[in-house]
Design a protein around this nucleic acid. Structure first.
Length: 608
RNA sequence: GCGGGAGUAGCUCAGCUGGUUAGAGCGUCGCCCUGUCACGGCGAAGGCCGCGGGUUCAAGUCCCGUCUCUCGCGCCA
């Protein structure tokens, strides 16, 4: 038996009445009635009310104990008197009548920088600097437990699907594509650097070429890019997986089981049951997603869709110059049907118009429909025939409104996409309490870099072009699709993946199209290139962002709420004082001399 | 790098068109209180109003600059 406790603070029930127990924990809250004192004792498992009255010799001492002191008490479990039981507390039927008391921690004498027993929105700086206190608080403590449970569930489900977990190097080579690397100087090789992996991409492919067939890893990934609310500074975790002898449908099936299963398992974490899309999840080609939703991460909780109505405004009998001018310059007009809003006050439309202007658009044009007749600022430019065509394209009916976005294709798509969200929010028609999954498929293999006007890989140079080498040799590069896909839930990108290009000839051709010199593949991906030539199986996989999944399950708007020790937006760890200057001898070891910019290097003050 | 918001007690915040001694809740300290569970009551300590300039008889409040935090853009194959 533990010398510290016979029970946890969440354990005792009415049936334990009469037992002599010993429990330890933090002083969560005190209620001092003079001759009678209540202490809520808290540990990881819960709260237990402890009570002592003034005839006990330790009363005076325990009365002085401060919040967040760690104490151990012994006493008798007693059933609370009728009318004093607390139904909100699992242990609320009983209390522990304190006999002895011992302080286990150094007594708290400093002021607490944040209060553990309150669910206030404390500032990020205080929370991160005193993260150990913050993590004692109920909500985030539960989030971190959820994280553990989710990761365990992922592991179990992956193993059940026949996957094995691997570890891949943290000190590895810089990858020439993608985000900025974190570099680690090499002591043994002056002037050379390791890079922390942005993803274990090449290693997992090499494991397939090593014949392991099904790989997964709870993989730490490092990218030296700025943070966002849904993107941590520096590092994050992925459920990374890869499998051999598969098509993309095989990958989808596995992950619909695993991720769908995880979401089902934790769908009620917040207390409200969330529905989860049943498998198979909808597949949406990239081009269709860009048209109908205005981006490649559609939020399917929003019932509105975008349609192209350029043909309406291109008609000879339509004389709306603003849109015609856009079309003449090669642009498009996109429309969003908003059902049953024609009776909304003018302010509804004005607000949306003002919003569009704040997004940099000239405005958000619209027509409302009463019967077959159009009203609103643009309606007068639409004669009967054009109106008929508009209704046919959009499916709009009497009582609806149709909003327009006109610009060059990608800008019109982007504005229409944002407008789709904004209009749905204003209408309050976004489905609640549901996780809506889809796969976005058929990403383009290449794209035109609008700065250099050259062809780049649009996503990931490792994915197999649809049609293979032959497609690369015979098709217009910008029309070639990659076997590349994303998984999206509620408008949040959760995963990216692809069927990989395992044919060295096709890899070389793809890099040639993207403007790399001959031999580039061999130079950049030497290990993998050799493996491709010595018997590479067809393979593919994907990687799900674990932090984002937990964030969704916990319904947290900020990713730091599901990470125990995140860095702040400036990629600083205020608690540990990272990053910090290196000692001169450390720099000498790795043959580095500093050449600092004139802005002084900031010292991050450690918690004191 | 750029834009929005914020910065007042240990913490969360209030502080009006500039106007006497800058307030509240929690926490801390002292006193009272034997059934509370956000216990209650009385009292006290605690403030470079982020920092630096400026305007003014007078600045937490207005102006300029700057720093910090945060949200977004860029960036994130």
């Amino acid at each position: 038996m533990s010398i510290y406790r016979t029970h946890t603070c969440g354990q005792l029930r009415g049936s334990d009445a009469g037992k002599e127990v010993k429990i330890s924990g933090w002083v969560h809250r005190k209620r001092d009635h003079g001759g009678l004192l209540f202490i809520d004792l808290r540990d990881h498992y819960g709260l237990t009310q402890c009570v002592i009255n003034s005839d006990n010799p330790v009363f005076a001492e325990i009365e002085r104990t401060r919040l967040e002191n760690v104490i151990m008490i012994t006493g008798e479990v007693v059933t609370r008197m009728a009318g004093t039981q607390n139904k909100d507390l699992p242990t609320g039927e009983i209390e522990v009548k304190i006999k002895t008391f011992e302080l286990l921690s150094s007594p708290v004498t400093d002021m607490l920088p944040l209060q553990v027993n309150a669910e206030e929105n404390y500032g990020e700086e205080v929370r991160l600097r005193y993260r150990f206190l913050d993590l004692r608080r109920e909500t985030i403590h539960k989030n971190i437990m959820l994280r553990s449970d989710v990761i365990y569930s992922m592991r179990r489900r992956m193993v059940e699907q026949g996957f094995r977990e691997f570890q891949t190097p943290i000190l590895t080579a810089s990858s020439p594509e993608g985000a900025r690397d974190f570099l680690v100087p090499s002591r043994l090789h002056p002037g050379k650097f390791y890079a922390l992996p942005q993803a274990p991409q090449q290693f997992k492919q090499l494991l397939m070429m090593s014949g392991f067939d099904r790989y997964f890893q709870i993989a730490p990934c490092f990218r030296d890019e700025d943070a966002r609310a849904d993107r941590t500074a520096g590092e994050f975790y992925q459920l990374d997986m890869e499998m051999s002898f598969v098509t993309q449908e095989d990958v989808f099936t596995v992950m619909e089981n695993v991720i769908g299963g995880v979401f089902e398992e934790f769908a009620e974490f917040t207390g409200t049951k969330q529905a989860v899309s049943p498998a198979p999840w909808i597949r949406i080609p990239y081009d269709e997603s860009m048209l109908k939703y205005g981006n490649d991460k559609p939020d399917l909780r929003n019932p509105l869709v975008i349609v192209d109505v350029s043909s309406v405004f291109a008609r000879a009998d339509v004389e709306f110059k603003a849109f015609k001018g856009v079309i003449d310059k090669g642009g498009v007009v996109r429309a969003i049907r908003a059902p049953k809003v024609s009776d909304r006050p003018r302010s509804f439309f004005d607000k949306l118009n003002a919003w569009a202007q704040s997004e940099g658009a000239p405005g958000l044009g619209y027509v409302t429909l009463e019967g077959a007749e159009g009203k609103g600022p643009i309606a007068k430019f639409l004669p009967a025939g054009a109106m008929e065509e508009l209704l046919k394209l959009t499916g709009a009916e009497s009582g609806d409104a149709v909003f327009f976005a006109a610009d060059v294709a990608d800008k019109a798509a982007s504005l229409a996409g944002k407008a789709r969200t904004k209009i749905a929010e204003e209408m309050d028609i976004i489905e609640k309490n549901t996780f809506k999954f889809c796969w976005v498929i058929d990403y383009p293999m290449f794209e035109l870099n609008d700065k250099t006007n050259k062809i780049d890989f649009s996503h990931n140079p490792f994915s197999m072009p649809q049609g293979g080498l032959k497609a690369l040799q015979t098709q217009e590069p910008l029309k070639i699709k990659a076997t590349q896909y994303d998984c999206v839930a509620n408008g949040l990108e959760l995963c990216s993946g692809g069927i990989r290009n395992h044919m060295p000839e096709a890899m070389e051709k793809a890099f040639e199209i993207a403007g790399y010199p001959a031999g580039a593949v061999q130079e950049k991906f030497g290990g993998m290139y050799n493996a491709f030539k010595l018997g590479a199986p067809p393979h593919g996989g994907c990687a799900f962002g674990i932090d984002r999944i937990i964030m969704m399950l916990a319904k947290e708007p900020n990713i730091r709420e599901v990470i125990a020790f995140p860095m702040n937006q400036q990629a600083e760890d205020l608690m540990m004082g990272a990053p910090s200057p290196a000692e001169p001898h450390q720099l000498k070891d790795v043959s580095i001399k500093l050449d600092l910019p004139k802005a002084a290097v900031k010292d991050i003050k450690q918690a004191s």
